[in-house]
C-alpha cells in the first residue's frame, strides 16, 4: 500500500497538542482565499479600501469649514486630521466584522464550503486560523493604503503615526476573533442582524466625528465600554502624536478582546463547524 502524501502530512502531527482540531496547515485556507480574490472577490476587497477614502472626502472636505478646528489635548487640530484616524480605525473594524460574521456565516450555511474543507485532513482550527489570518492580511493592506493617501496630505502630523498601521491590525484582530466567537453562537441568519444593531450606534457615538466630551459623563462611560471608542482613541493618539500611557490601556483592551474571542471560538469550534 502506498501511503499518499496526505496521510504522511496528517500523521506528522500525531501526538502533538491539539491534533484533534489542528493539522498545522491553515496556509491552505489562505491560499484558497488568495485564488478566490484573484478571480472573484477582488471587487469587495477593493471596495473596503474605498469606503474610508469616500468618508474622508465627504466629511473631511465638506465639513471642515463648517466645524472649524477641534481642540485635542489643548492643541487645535484641523478637522480632516481629526477624523482621518477615526476612519482608519472604523474601516479596520468593518472589514474584520464582515469577514468574521457575514462571510463565515455564508460560507458555512449557504455555500456549505466549510463542510467540504472539513471533509479533508484539515481541522476546524486550521479553518478558523486561516480565515482570521487572511482577514488580518487584508486589514494590513487597507491601512497601508489609507496611510499612503493621508500621510502625503499632511494629515499625520506625528512620526508616531506609522504605528497606526500595526494598531489597525491589532484592532482588526480583536474584532475578527470576537466576531467569529459571536458567529459560533448564531442559529439563523436573522440573528446576524443583531450585529448590525450593535454596530450602528457604536459607529455613531464613538467619537469619530467630534470629541466625546459633548456627551454627559454617564454616556461617555457607557460608550467606553465598547471597543470602537478605544480603537479611535488609540489610532488618533498615534497619528496626532499624543503619546501617553492611556494608549497602552487602549491596546490592552484589544489584547483582552483577542484572548476572549479566541477562547470562545476555540471552545465552540465543533459547534461552529462540525454539527
Amino acid at each position: 500500500m502506498i501511503l499518499s502524501t496526505a496521510v504522511a502530512i496528517a500523521e506528522a502531527r500525531m501526538g502533538k497538542p491539539g491534533e484533534k482540531y489542528y493539522s498545522g496547515r491553515s496556509r491552505a485556507i489562505m491560499e484558497r482565499a488568495y485564488i478566490a480574490f484573484k478571480s472573484s472577490t477582488w471587487m469587495i476587497v477593493i471596495s473596503g479600501f474605498v469606503e474610508p477614502v469616500l468618508f474622508l472626502l465627504s466629511f473631511g472636505y465638506g465639513l471642515k469649514d463648517l466645524v472649524g478646528d477641534i481642540t485635542v489635548a489643548g492643541q487645535p487640530v484641523g478637522y480632516v486630521a481629526f477624523i482621518a484616524p477615526a476612519l482608519l480605525a472604523t474601516s479596520a473594524m468593518n472589514g474584520a466584522i464582515y469577514d468574521s460574521t457575514m462571510n463565515v456565516y455564508f460560507k458555512l450555511k449557504h455555500d456549505r464550503l466549510y463542510h467540504g474543507m472539513l471533509a479533508t485532513s484539515l481541522g476546524p482550527m486550521d479553518v478558523a486560523l486561516g480565515e482570521i489570518s487572511w482577514a488580518l492580511l487584508r486589514g494590513l493592506s487597507y491601512s497601508i493604503g489609507f496611510m499612503a493617501i493621508v500621510a502625503p496630505l499632511g494629515l499625520i502630523p506625528s512620526m508616531w503615526g506609522i504605528l497606526a498601521i500595526p494598531a489597525a491590525v491589532l484592532i482588526a484582530f480583536g474584532f475578527a476573533s470576537f466576531g467569529m466567537a459571536v458567529t459560533s453562537y448564531m442559529k439563523s441568519f436573522q440573528q446576524l442582524e443583531i450585529v448590525n444593531v450593535v454596530l450602528l450606534p457604536m459607529f455613531l457615538f464613538s467619537g469619530s466625528f467630534y470629541p466625546l466630551d459633548v456627551f454627559p459623563e454617564w454616556l461617555q462611560t457607557v460608550i467606553r465600554i465598547f471597543p470602537l471608542a478605544h480603537a479611535i482613541d488609540l489610532v488618533r493618539g498615534l497619528t496626532l502624536g499624543n503619546i501617553s500611557w492611556a494608549l497602552a490601556g487602549h491596546a490592552m483592551y484589544f489584547v483582552v478582546m483577542i484572548v476572549i474571542g479566541l477562547f470562545f471560538t476555540t471552545r465552540r469550534l465543533n459547534a461552529l463547524f462540525m454539527r
Partner: peptide, 8 residues
C-alpha cells in the same frame, strides 16, 4: 483523530 482519519 479527526484530521488523521480524514486524510484517508
Amino acid at each position: 483523530f479527526g484530521p488523521q482519519i480524514r486524510a484517508h
